[in-house]
Nucleic acid binder design. Sequence first.
DNA 1: CGGCCTTTTTGAACGGCGTTCAAGCCGTAC
DNA 2: GTACGGCTTGAACGCCGTTCAAAAAGGCCG
Lengths: 228, 228
Amino acid sequence: MLYRLPRNLGEDDLERRKPESSRLKKPSNPRSDPAFRDKLRDTVMGIGRRLIVQEGLASVQARRIASEAGCAVGSIYNVFQDLDALIIALNTVTLGELGSALKAAHDASKNAPTHERLLALAQAYFEFAGSNRQLWRAIFEHHLPEGAKAPAEYRDDQNSLFALVEDCLIDDISDAAERRRAARALFASVHGIVSLALDRKLGEFEPDETRKQIEFLVGCAARGLQAK
Amino acid sequence: MLYRLPRNLGEDDLERRKPESSRLKKPSNPRSDPAFRDKLRDTVMGIGRRLIVQEGLASVQARRIASEAGCAVGSIYNVFQDLDALIIALNTVTLGELGSALKAAHDASKNAPTHERLLALAQAYFEFAGSNRQLWRAIFEHHLPEGAKAPAEYRDDQNSLFALVEDCLIDDISDAAERRRAARALFASVHGIVSLALDRKLGEFEPDETRKQIEFLVGCAARGLQAK
DNA sequence: CGGCCTTTTTGAACGGCGTTCAAGCCGTAC
DNA sequence: GTACGGCTTGAACGCCGTTCAAAAAGGCCG
């Protein structure tokens, strides 16, 4: 049972503690210096990331992190509002890395036909999810408490992923709204295939089978677009 | 919540206490009668289901269920090995209901062309997920502990869902392996679209937009199959 | 140096979780 | 009546996230 009961989450706590906020009041204590804070923040995030990679999201626990970071539990709550905020920060990093991977595939196939470009993106997505399984899973395993909204950065990152697909369809779908919809549908489709494949809920994970499913889907979509 | 290896129970504790098993040893106490056990079992499952529907999977808690069922926490562990087993039992029910919904759509479109049949299935899936959000989410939110495997029934249920899609493709894809792959890919694709739409991680849930995405995907796939 | 002040760090404490298990309870059998 | 099971019970155990009063740490000033 991997999720948690809702916690309170300030809307933008990820944006706290910007350098300029500390300029308003000169810190009389160097430990209130952003550098100090950021150091612990980085340490905590590093440990959190390692925990996700090695054991999964469920192992991101306050006491665990504190003991590995050599500090008290309370200190974690000094740099992150709560564990949700830490997880969101970690997932934002992962989302960024996923974005880079997709962007690389997108750029590399710049002048190829639509079919190839879509396939390159889909394969890059699958590749990333497969070789960063736990990090990737963490993105979708983590659920915000009922009221809370994902930070803007989160949604922007997701939108920029969709935009990569959208860009591949620019020659095939002239209407912008329709293109946007198609891009999201295709992205979600590949996500669905990868998602069900990695959630070993039906038998073991078979990379080759998954790859072929992706090829089938993208092939159908590309042909379907042309035949339109 | 760790899956301790069962004391003496095999993987099918859901199947325990069938009438025939009680014939082997006549119970010396009526409370060991299947009827008694099943009554509590049903009560617990009823409460569990209501908790999922009303508040989500996270509210399926031992103390909560016990208090609503008017029994002690320990009694729950007499009819379910642990909460995971309860959740799996609940999800199995949901999976069955989903299967019925899809089968109805499948049967109703018996003689329609492939495109319509696929669309009917996809729409039925979306319809089910949308009007049973929490129950549907619970299926994918719940993760088995590392070592454990889903019960056979679970996988059989999933396979029978795929089979419905497969059946729609029988005229379009002659090779059985390829048809199987296509069915899974399409199912997963629709699942992906519905999944990302309902996980309000990117903006609010917009049923109409989702419906159009599904129409786009199925349309592409159907045309793509013909153009093959 | 010793106060003074600010901010961080600390970890015991709180409430809640899943799960266990010794002790009691309760029909039945003898 | 007594003995025998299995069922029920709920306190207890060991976790969890989170809080917050108290302690500590570092700069400042007289």
